[in-house]
Nucleic acid binder design. Structure first.
Lengths: 214, 214
DNA sequence: GATAAAAATAGAACAATGTTCGATAACATG
DNA sequence: CATGTTATCGAACATTGTTCTATTTTTATC
């Protein structure tokens, strides 16, 4: 009954948000429902600790970025968090729900901020910029990584079929009324989530470079 | 028993996510629990329709931005959504949970995209940029607008006291280990959420200007 | 106006969930 | 061994979304 947190993370990763119930977790641990409460005050803390568990790993992965180009290090730091959140929808919704100032996420914020300091920005600018980067990462990752609708989860429809159907729907819309959607439907059909994330991140970083230069 | 959706929105706005239960909604409408199911297929659709309700208003508010400077219009369009989401935590989590391709949010995406087209970006760049802007707005808004912890909701602690406590916690951290947090704690103590949002948005827009120029 | 069909309402019953609680067991320490 | 701490368990409870069936109200038709 020791590894409550690690087992919770496994459950979340395998089957998503809704799969984590005290009963399913208990049976997986081979114990009773009530026992979990000895390790954890409630579901809130359970998810919190699970999130911390993952964030600790992210923090380890981003330690390497220290002495390169500040912007490049910033980039790597952002990508690491993005990847962690993108394939963990539950992490994204946790970040959204709960304040981002829990120890581990605060550490991440600090790390991003330290890169900002290397750019020579004043406190206000670096605070705003760090918030923007972290907010963007979480926002996009949570958006891209969210659970697909029921059909896909039920396996009655594959992810690809669902995606293809969306593309088809867009193509069927009135081109007069939806000129933009029509203009991008082809690139959307072949787009890659990570590349999309990076493109937006580079916009922010480009803006940052300007601000740092002046 | 007509205004199920509008009453649901009121409930959500007044007391947040967790306050919207079928029973509370029913008693507010002066009817029975089961009746709601005649208008709505389930809770999923209820929230979806509530979100649509708000998004329709946002779309109306952003109609004005059409013939100004493309970047400025983009800015106004983004701010309108930000404000709507920032004081509606439930809207943010809805966006995160459910795909952003419901009719009303798709319309918003289209509108942002049309501004991108005016910048003369190629399809891939405009798709990425539109996604970045929308993702940033939702991400930051959801982050800033999330429900404060229990104490504040319980009214045992005011929002200001809670904020002040956070600032105090930061000041107490080891300055060696948390140089960034210490450098920004003063601007954090007096910061304004909307300004913070705008600062980040301007980074993206600055990056966009460069991209549009080349 | 009567009657039938449709629209709308109501609330009891159900299943799933987080949580509380008191009763034990296992274990360490003197 | 005695005793207190650590750890486990599952029954009971309250709160949710949802289903179902019965009933009322409205509308349409003759």
């Amino acid at each position: 009954m020791e590894s409550v947190i690690t087992e919770a993370v496994k459950l979340l990763d395998e089957a998503g948000d809704s799969a984590l119930t005290f009963r399913s977790l208990a049976s997986r641990l081979g114990g009773g429902v009530g026992s979990i409460y000895w390790y954890v005050s409630g579901k809130e803390e359970l998810i919190e600790r699970a999130a911390d568990h993952v964030m600790t790993q992210v923090l380890r992965d981003t330690e390497q970025f220290e002495d390169g180009d500040a912007i490049e290090d910033l980039r790597g730091t952002a990508v690491a968090l993005f990847e962690a959140v993108a394939d963990r929808p539950w992490l994204g919704s946790y970040f959204m729900r709960s304040a981002a100032l829990r120890p581990s996420s605060l550490r991440y914020f600090e790390r991003v901020g330290q890169h900002m300091m290397r750019l020579g920005l004043d406190p206000l600018a670096s605070f705003n910029a760090a918030s923007a980067v972290v907010g963007y990462v979480i926002g996009i990752a949570a958006d891209l990584g969210h659970q697909p609708p029921e059909e896909v989860v039920d396996r009655t429809v594959t992810r690809e079929e669902y995606f293809a159907r969306t593309v088809g729907d867009w193509r069927d819309l009135d081109p007069e009324e939806w000129p933009f959607l029509h203009s991008i439907v082809d690139v959307f059909a072949t787009h890659d989530d990570t590349e999309q994330f990076l493109a937006g991140l580079d916009l922010i970083l480009a803006g940052l470079r300007i601000q740092a230069g002046s």
